[in-house]
């Protein structure tokens, strides 16, 4: 895996997610770009690299977001970092069973991993809202919006599949990496 290329990819996806979210959103649902990129890396990268990529990409997403808690803008780190870590772990676990050339497999994994990540985020934020009473948080509303956004992310993943022939070699991701990395976490 080429760390520099992957970092650049994540950086661009982060910027794209911030910029495009409002432009293509409908009714509060907006596509994710970083999460499908994490899933794509997790499908091909060594396990440890995939997990760190997920964690750091999620941390960067947390650092860009600001929430109002007791009318004070606050940065909450952890929910997306752990959520994307969970998504990366899920992907690395099931990638051995995937047909990696199939677009449907890519989309399916992206949606499932995205759903898992957003559930993790919702759980952590819900606990935070209990602890910090001044935080506005509606559990079911957020969960619904985020799960629909994860579905939206499936469409983004389809786009990544179309570009995979170009992107994967640049990022140093290929089938050999997964065969080397699979099983390490099982020890």
């Amino acid at each position: 895996m080429n760390p520099l290329a992957v970092t650049l990819m994540m950086y661009l996806c982060l910027a794209l997610e911030s910029a495009v979210r409002t432009a293509v959103a409908g009714g509060g649902v907006s596509p994710y770009f970083v999460l499908p990129a994490v899933v794509m890396v997790a499908m091909f990268a060594p396990v440890q690299s995939a997990l760190w990529t997920g964690l750091l990409a999620g941390l960067a997403t947390d650092l860009l977001g600001v929430r109002m808690i007791d009318q004070v803008p606050t940065v909450v780190v952890g929910p997306h970092a752990l959520g994307y870590l969970a998504a990366a772990y899920f992907t690395t676990t099931i990638r051995g069973m995937m047909m990696k050339r199939s677009i449907f497999a890519w989309v399916f994994v992206a949606i499932c991993a995205g759903g898992l990540a957003q559930c993790t985020v919702v759980v952590l934020m819900t606990v935070r809202s209990w602890v910090d009473g001044g935080m506005a948080w509606t559990v079911w509303g957020e969960l619904g919006t985020r799960l629909f956004s994860a579905l939206y992310g499936g469409a983004v993943m389809a786009g990544f599949w179309l570009c995979s022939r170009v992107m994967l070699p640049i990022m140093g991701l290929n089938e050999q990496a997964t065969s080397r990395g699979y099983g390490r976490m099982m020890r």
Binding site: S18, V77, G78
Partner: peptide
């Protein structure tokens, strides 16, 4: 650590530690 930071209340001051990282990320992106 991140799990703790995720659920720690704001009054513990975790936000003040994170704020420089937040500004750096925003500046970069």
């Amino acid at each position: 650590g991140l799990g703790f930071a995720a659920i720690a209340p704001a009054r513990l001051g975790v936000g003040s530690v994170i704020r420089p990282l937040h500004l750096a990320t925003v500046f970069a992106v």
